[in-house]
Design a protein around this nucleic acid. Sequence first.
DNA 1: GTAATGTTTTACCAACCGGTCAAATTATCA
DNA 2: TGATAATTTGACCGGTTGGTAAAACATTAC
Lengths: 216, 216
Amino acid sequence: MVLPRAARTQRRTRIQEEKEELILEAALDVFATHGFRGSTIDQIADVAGMSKPNLLYYFRTKEAMHRALIDRVLDSWLDPLREFDAEGNPVSEIRSYIRRKLEMARDFPRESRLFANEILQGAPHIEDELKGPLKTLVDEKAEVIRAWAKAGKIAKCDPYHLIFAIWSTTQHYADFDVQVRGVLGEGRSGEGRFEDAARFLEQLFVTGLSADGSAS
Amino acid sequence: MVLPRAARTQRRTRIQEEKEELILEAALDVFATHGFRGSTIDQIADVAGMSKPNLLYYFRTKEAMHRALIDRVLDSWLDPLREFDAEGNPVSEIRSYIRRKLEMARDFPRESRLFANEILQGAPHIEDELKGPLKTLVDEKAEVIRAWAKAGKIAKCDPYHLIFAIWSTTQHYADFDVQVRGVLGEGRSGEGRFEDAARFLEQLFVTGLSADGSAS
DNA sequence: GTAATGTTTTACCAACCGGTCAAATTATCA
DNA sequence: TGATAATTTGACCGGTTGGTAAAACATTAC
């Protein structure tokens, strides 16, 4: 019978696993560079090396592909923040959070751009996740930071804006890679660039948040 | 005669001025939220309140509209960096650069998103500008910062990454506005949010770059 | 082996897209 | 006012887009 994939109950064949993987990989490529509306199914099919109807056999719509991709990636994307440990040493926690985020920007730039595109364009497909799970997690970690500041372990500062600053500075190296490369020139090549960035950001945040800092 | 606009020599009628303005305004709206490929001429025409052929009378292609928009916006976008003054007081120069960038993110979010979309998608239309005028300007200002650091007026740090950090943290409030609002909730509304951000960022960068900071 | 199920392809469709054309309409100015 | 140029419109075109239908083909289970 021709039971389009969406109607599957629980069992998935070997081919399904493989092909879905292949498709999502291709979709990540395409969505990350063109955004949802700018991407075409044909393009994705092409990258995946299969025909369009074949692709649509596994994901019935473009939206379904996008959604599957978001779902799969969002979770791992938030891992670094989850690891943020209330019991650890504040400075080294922040330092290693920065480093982990920077490593993700280096190793998973497509994932970063996927979200960047989505949010830039108004987050039409992930608004719920933003206001739900993401907000909850951030609220929780912000509370940890606030407690650290209150205890005088780091400078008093708005924890939310601290988190935004870490997000933006690190993801910048994935999302705006072309610009970074354009400005730096081809001199500072791949690996060195990330080391420079890491050194700078750690200095900025560690010094910037040293306990003697003032401001509300 | 039917002289399509592109063939104009120098004189432009009042109507041309008005309509081109109207179109670019609409185009900014659309391009900023959907990126180049995700935007359609019909959409822009719709926002501008005119028919598609009429719109194409003023800009012969979608690319021409995009280009005109980029050209008009890029210059003013770099103004804050140009104002960066080598003779001024380092700390207050950096502080006011941050504030100006933040004001631009607040007052011209569409312009910010226009560039963000463009760069995120590989900067296919502005690569030359990145490697040309932008790089030149950044190189120049980086040299100023390097001199300040060498003179011990601010901490030693990589000036390029400092500039990237200021760009990313400030533009974040325009480009990722949905996320910021989603995470903060509707509590901290518009004006207050930017004040909080400004306070945090000034603290971060001023403290983070205080002359006693170490690291290469 | 064969029947049932799972996968892939070919051909196709309606809507949309960027863009053209010629005719109709409106503004300008002598 | 009328001629001339500038602007706007509706009808249209070929290519692309997201998606479908049905049949051909492959795989698995018995």
